[in-house]
Amino acid sequence: MSLLADAFTILAILAGIGFFAAGTAGLLRFPDTASRLHALTKADHLGLGLVVIGLLPQAGSLANTLRLLAVWALVLVASAAAGPMLATLTRRAEPET
């Protein structure tokens, strides 16, 4: 059982890291700010989600499980707010490319 859980954790976290890597590549290689933001928010938070899901079997207690989920939720909220703000700012700074 615990072996299965560990295997799940490793797989999920590896997948998460894959999304982080993809997101970072996008941030560096995409041509304009909007697509970079897209790469960052989408991939990163999928990545973080997978990492959090992967860690859930290791949480040990309900409190820790809730904490992990809270981390995910708060990061989602933060990027949901920061993404549009950055987008608005860039639209003001570099009009219609």
Binding site: A70, L74, V77, A78, A80, A81, A82, G83, P84, M85
Partner: peptide, 14 residues
């Protein structure tokens, strides 16, 4: 409305 208002309403209770 907008992200700032969203954060300002959502985060403080937490």
């Amino acid at each position: 409305d907008g992200p700032r208002a969203l954060l300002a309403r959502l985060l403080p209770p937490i």
